[in-house]
Amino acid sequence: MDLHTVTDVISAPEPGMWRPGDAWLGGGTALFGEPRPSISRLLDLPSAGWPALTVRDDGVEVAATCTVAELYRGLGEYPIAGQCCHSFLASFKIWNVATVGGNLCSALPAGPMISLCSALGGVCLLIDASGAERSVPVADFVVDDGRTLLRDGELLRSIFLPWAALRGRTAFRRGSLHRHGRSAVLLIGVLGEDGGLELTVTAATRRPWVFRFSAVPSELSTALAAIPPEAWTDDVHGRPVWRAHLTRYFAEQIRVELSA
């Protein structure tokens, strides 16, 4: 969809260039998906030339402009990364354009990069219009369907993923109304080196829910009961009661798998 109100596109922008009416442009697959009459100028982030993946001793830094294809080529050897990449309702064309940062900032419940980064304890690096930085866990970055913690003029620079979680033992479950449909339920379990379990619920809920246990519990239904009725996603891809049922079903499968 054309954005008819846009009059300028700025290459290699700096945070201080932002002004009301601007929008940060990553891959554009979400930005151009619907009318946005309030936008008059685009700040093109890919032209900044950030490295897609930066390997560190303690983990990997994923640039917000890293495409799904680049993430898959760089981290596809880790099962959970590959599984989340394949959870996109998208063709290979989208894989080569859509960005990890764009998926997070769109904050759609079915966003698989939200699932991946939340489950792995990812941390967002945010930069405001003055150049000041702050770090926010991905699980807290998305606050509701279509809403994040981003402030006016603030941009998502990167997401840090620790090796400990990325290389850990994981279990993945995904459900949809159709074989190749949008994710209605997506759960990831990560077993820590200390035997602790982290269970992340996404797609079924309007924001990520992360449950942490010091050891694999004997049951998960009590913990999952903490998700309130209004937190479940309700749209054409699945009703809340079905999503909640499938969440409990998948959670038990993950519990059994990771306790083996």
Rank of each mutant, 00 (worst) to 15 (best):
D58S: 10
G74V: 02
S106W: 14
H86V: 14
N103K: 00
A90P: 04
R56I: 06
K93C: 15
R73C: 10
G82Y: 01
E61K: 10
I94M: 11
T67E: 04
L104F: 00
A90R: 08
A110L: 08
V123L: 11
E70Q: 14
S130H: 10
E61L: 11
C85Q: 04
L126K: 04
N103Q: 04
V62I: 13
E70V: 02
V123K: 13
I94E: 05
A90V: 07
C85T: 01
A64H: 00
V123M: 11
L120D: 02
F92M: 14
L89V: 15
R56K: 13
P79S: 08
I80C: 08
V100D: 05
L116A: 08
V68I: 07
F92P: 15
V100M: 07
Y78D: 03
A110R: 05
V55M: 10
I94A: 14
G111S: 13
P109L: 04
A129Y: 03
K93F: 15
C85R: 03
A110C: 10
G74T: 01
G111H: 08
A64Q: 04
L89D: 14
S130I: 14
A129K: 12
E61M: 09
V97R: 11
D58N: 09
K93S: 15
R56W: 14
V55H: 07
V60R: 00
L71N: 03
G76N: 00
Y72N: 13
F88D: 10
C105N: 07
V100W: 01
K93T: 15
A63M: 06
P112L: 00
V123N: 02
S87H: 06
I94Q: 12
Y78G: 03
